[in-house]
Amino acid sequence: MFKRYLLRRLLHAVLLLAGVSVLSFVLLELAPGDFLGEARINPQLSASTIAALQEQYGLNQSLPHKYLSWLGSVTKGSFGVSFSYNLPVSTLLWPRARKTLQLTLASLFLSWLIALPLGVLSAGRRGGWLDRGTSLVTSLLLGLPDLVLACLVLFLAVRTGWFRTGHPILPITVLVLAALPLLVRHVRSALLDVAQQPHVRAARAHGIHGMQLWFQWLLPAAANPLASLFGLSIAGLISSSLLVETILGWPGLGPLFLEAIAARDFYLVIGPVMLSAVFLVAGVLIGDLLLYLVDPRIRTGI
């Protein structure tokens, strides 16, 4: 049963990623520039040199040709070649991807670690001082975009000198602060919704309360929205990481990507785009799988 569900979701994810790759290729091809743009206006390079370079980099090929050969390189594990570095894209990507994953996973863990209890306590003592305080802070934080948060943290780090730039605590702090407000709000509202459900109210009317209520009724019922939320929070972290890594000097995918696009290094650009799409889709997939494990209703729906 689980295997069938897993296979279906995997197939769906793969199809989605294939679609994303095609769309990305098309969009990038539509844009008129390419790697040799600068070279062409350089008076020191002759037209024949340019032509030879074009051959070498495969810039003359048609779009389907390029796409298919890229797909071929994906199966071989090289993901195309970087023009600037003259190396397979994968050798450049993996170390950076690891760094980004480290950041993302750490932030994921920390943000849920903080958000769950905060959300639970806020929902549990609705209207209390913790609830109102949390609500105020989340409203404030929600209004601060990632860009601002990153600059703020950088500013503080520089002023106080507590952490040097490049230390992981800086980007993690920003990512967590960026993710927390929505997470806390959603956890809180999911729990409040669940508390209103008929079977939970019936349990309370029967006198069940405290720990038993939480672990046997509330948390299992809230598992559905929370599992979906988990997948979405991964997606959010991936999107934020590009900017945060760049501003705070963390050597992840972000800075590599920006370098690549400045150089118009086509395959090195496609690499991180696809990788972040993979993380995104993987995040939602994990959310769906968690949902399956946690919510029996999903299992019977197959």
Partner: peptide, 17 residues
């Protein structure tokens, strides 16, 4: 919705004249 839009935005922008 599955597109990492910031990445894509930057990428397309980079290839514009």
């Amino acid at each position: 919705l599955a597109l990492p839009w910031l990445y894509l935005l930057l990428a397309v922008r980079a290839f514009l004249p």
